[in-house]
Design a binder for these strands. Structure first.
Length: 111
DNA sequence: TTTCTAACA
DNA sequence: TGTTAGCA
């Protein structure tokens, strides 16, 4: 239902400067998270990253985990392990933001 | 001017 | 993580 919204949310439009302002993270951090495959923003022909709203939301989720004391390593495992396929194609077939189980409470099991 | 990668303090 | 160098 309303596939248009999901498409919009997965449409890459924000440059690094916007991602930084919207998430409060530094470019260094964002690039580092990408190197760990926590986020996979699109690229322009000039190799510049372009983030979608979903990318930013994911960045915010990562931030949330960090505040709960998670290690980047563990955050990576949590976000990837359960075969979390976040490609635009797959997301289109899943409800946007469908809570992947219990987010914040996972800290009690892993922390 | 902004972002990118790589690498060092 | 911060920061900087050298490109595109």
């Amino acid at each position: 239902m309303l596939d248009r919204d999901q498409m919009r949310r997965n449409t890459p439009i924000f440059p690094m400067s916007s991602a930084m302002k919207l998430t409060g993270l530094t470019a260094r951090q964002i690039r580092y998270y990408e190197s760990l495959s926590l986020v996979t923003p699109e690229r322009t022909p000039g190799n510049h990253r372009i983030f979608s709203m979903n990318d930013l939301d994911l960045l915010l989720t990562i931030q949330d985990y960090m505040e709960k004391g998670f290690t980047m390593k563990r955050i990576g495992e949590i976000l990837n392990e359960p075969k979390r396929i976040d490609t635009p194609e797959v997301l289109k077939h899943n409800d946007y933001r469908k809570p992947l189980l219990n987010r914040g409470d996972l800290s009690r099991f892993f922390q």
